[in-house]
Design a protein around this nucleic acid. Structure first.
Length: 573
DNA sequence: GCCGTTTTCGGCCCGACTGTTTTCAGTCG
């Protein structure tokens, strides 16, 4: 079983326990464990009980269940719960406004087991008489059922950022004095965002009317004086929250999250005799206010360093902030070069000169031109002769742009059996080689692992490009043994890429962190196929920051001379 | 079910909004 599947079972157990009305803290334990494992960078199923218990939030019982899942593919406890409630009942929890108590009551009174059952009951007016149910609630449930297909869930980070920026502009027209701050998962730089959270500091309640009046609002989910939620066209939920100026920092902290981080630091606050909410940090004994205007003030009062938003996932940052050992995260300004891009020689939209000129304008000190290799026929991939001729043209441009060096490289396909698409002799004549998988994605884990390991054996491969091959919201990552691959990469002095294509972001944050912790150097590369795409390094920087990366962890922050010496081809003795 | 700078037992984050209610439970983030 892969991590996702294990995480899924634990989440289902949490949902089922919640419907059953079980102990709330037990439910939280399953949910927390599920969330932790969902982003765990290495294969959970391969860990023994002791290793499992070293993971925060995993104790004796959960470790046992995870072992059981890894060995047998099912867990008795899960199956027992599913005998009480059919699996389709879990779909009901996804409906807006329907929670576990309602699901349990519907199941007990009307034997409702699925969304179809619920829709039929609502349409025939059977819900109205039930406890806590009225005509409005019945209508709300019907509306939720109809909307569930539209509310497709998560959105790409850059799309969310653009939608949020437009919404901020719109609201600013209605109140020029208010400070509008996007918070939530967008501020944390998550690869996808479920909704848009905007904080209005010092705003007047009239701002809520402005939000409701936005032309893209499809439905108002709730409207109050300080908090409103709307559903926007395109499937975004947007939440607007008004706070007074003296609570600016507390509100930013609170609404930036993550939930797990906030629980952790509120726990810390309670230990110190404080209460922390979105209005400030207060002493428990006399309710006096200790902090709240700034985030820094709150963290300081809790005996912690200020924590960068990207780190706030309860993955060790609370402990590090208390110990004063948080990393100094990499910034976009520290990147000097870009080591992955395409031109019209293969499937790029702009030619070599245009790409070089644009990189020069952006202040890059070096770039690698890495067009595709021959196996990618639909991209007009390069055979050896063309690859070397192209390399000569790339090198001929050197000297034409002040302070910009061009490296002649290639993005060489890793074939199905792990051979490289071009000969060693050809690859050796280039300045840099990125190796990537673009075909035969559905191999099983063993085949795929062998394939990648064999590719890594080729001494002229410097960088593993978009290593997992995933496309966010479209295609699952390739199945392979990441731990074994990282071991091999590390052994051979190779580099792993954080690809900045917004639907790739590959490696992701947790894999990039695992790589970094093994001492594997990272590069942040645009994989640009056009001049415009050269500016998207910022999204990869977000991933790197979420991976706790400092400038020293990322090779393209280094001057060219140092970068060269650290590439595999120049390391061999 | 997890966990420990008081604790191996007894704690476990906090508040807004809605709909159904005569004071609150459920849901959400």
């Amino acid at each position: 079983m892969d991590n996702r599947a294990i995480s899924q079972v634990l989440a289902e157990i949490a949902d089922l326990l919640e419907i059953r009305g079980d102990n709330a803290f037990k439910i939280r334990a399953y949910r927390t464990a599920s969330e932790t494992l969902a982003t765990w960078p290495h294969a959970i199923a391969q860990l023994d009980e002791q290793q499992l218990r070293a993971i925060p939030g995993i104790g004796k019982d959960l470790a046992g269940r995870i072992r059981e899942l890894a060995e047998t593919g099912t867990a008795k406890y899960h199956q027992e719960l599913l005998e009480q409630f059919p699996p389709t009942i879990l779909d009901l929890l996804r409906l807006q406004g329907v929670g576990p108590k309602t699901v349990a009551m519907l199941h007990a009174t009307l034997n409702i087991k699925s969304i179809e059952d619920l829709a039929a009951a609502a349409k025939t007016g059977k819900l109205k008489g039930l406890k806590g149910m009225g005509a409005k609630k019945e209508a709300q449930i019907l509306a939720s059922i109809e909307e569930r297909a539209k509310d497709v869930g998560r959105h790409l980070l850059s799309d969310t950022a653009a939608t949020a920026a437009a919404l901020v502009e719109f609201l600013r027209i209605h109140d020029r004095n208010v400070e509008l701050i996007p918070v939530g998962s967008l501020r944390r730089g998550r690869e996808t965002c479920g909704d848009i959270d905007i904080l209005a500091v010092g705003g007047q309640p009239g701002l809520m009317d402005a939000l409701i009046s936005h032309p893209d609002v499809e439905r108002v989910l709730g409207q109050g004086d300080t908090k409103s939620s709307v559903l926007l066209r395109g499937g975004y939920q947007a939440d607007l929250r008004l706070v007074p100026r003296e609570s600016r920092g507390a509100a930013m902290q609170y609404f930036t999250g993550s939930k797990a981080h906030n629980i952790s630091i509120r726990d810390r606050a309670v230990q110190l005799g404080f209460k922390l909410n979105e209005y400030g940090l207060f002493r428990l004994d006399d309710d006096s206010r200790v902090a709240g205007e700034t985030e820094e003030g709150i963290y300081r009062a809790l005996g912690m360093e200020w924590v960068e938003p990207e780190l706030r996932e309860n993955r060790g940052e609370v402990e590090a902030a208390r110990a004063g050992v948080l990393p100094k995260l990499i910034t976009l300004a520290e990147l000097r070069g870009d080591l992955h891009m395409h031109t019209t020689e293969t499937d790029g939209k702009d030619d070599l000169t245009a790409m070089a000129e644009a990189a020069h304008r952006l202040g890059r000190e070096y770039i690698a031109i890495t067009d595709h290799s021959q196996a990618l026929a639909m991209a007009n991939g390069l055979d050896e002769k063309r690859a070397l001729a192209h390399a000569a043209r790339v090198r001929a441009l050197n000297g034409r742009f002040e302070n910009l060096t061009l490296l002649a490289g290639i993005e060489c396909d890793i074939l199905s059996d792990g051979r490289l698409d071009l000969s060693d002799d050809c690859l050796a004549q280039l300045d840099i080689v990125v190796a990537s998988i673009h075909s035969n994605f559905s191999q099983d884990s063993q085949q795929m692992t062998d394939r990648i390991l064999r590719a890594i054996e080729c001494p002229w491969v410097d960088i593993l490009g978009h290593p997992t091959g995933r496309r966010l919201l479209q295609r699952e990552p390739l199945k392979f043994d990441m731990t074994a691959v990282m071991d091999a990469v590390s052994r051979h002095g190779m580099v792993m890429e954080i690809n900045c294509q917004i639907e790739r972001l590959d490696l992701n944050d947790s894999h990039a962190r695992a790589a970094r912790e093994r001492g594997i150097p990272l590069v942040i590369s645009t994989d640009a196929h056009s001049v415009n795409a050269l500016s998207r390094l910022q999204w990869g920087v977000q991933v790197a920051r979420r991976a706790w990366a400092q400038s020293g962890d990322v090779l393209n922050t280094r001057p060219l001379a140092e970068l060269r010496t650290r590439l595999r081809r120049h390391r061999r003795t």
